[in-house]
């Protein structure tokens, strides 16, 4: 099935190993970073929302604050 005769042959990529493997490494690093960044964005957005709600509830419990007259 395979086009390679040995594991070494697979790693060597017909002599193109210095180009093929870094290309795959870069692509999968980009994919990993995308997952990490997306999770971080969602986590931070949730934390920010939680803080905002906590502040709102605090001010609500403290009673109506004076509106600045314009």
């Amino acid at each position: 099935m395979s086009s390679f005769h040995s594991f070494y042959g697979f790693l060597d990529m017909g002599g193109y190993a210095p180009f093929v493997w870094p290309a795959y490494a870069v692509t999968f690093t980009v994919m990993g970073l995308n997952i990490y960044w997306a999770k971080r964005l969602l986590r931070r957005a949730r934390q920010a929302a939680r803080r905002r709600i906590a502040v709102q509830e605090e001010t609500h419990l403290a009673g109506p604050t004076e509106e600045p007259s314009v």
């Binding site: 086009s3 697979f10 990529m13 017909g14 002599g15 193109y16 093929v20 795959y24």
Partner: peptide, 15 residues
């Protein structure tokens, strides 16, 4: 792994 090498680019085309 399974795809054959290219007749011109060998295994380099796997990029």
């Amino acid at each position: 792994y399974l795809a054959p090498p290219d007749y011109q680019q060998g295994d380099g085309y796997r990029i």
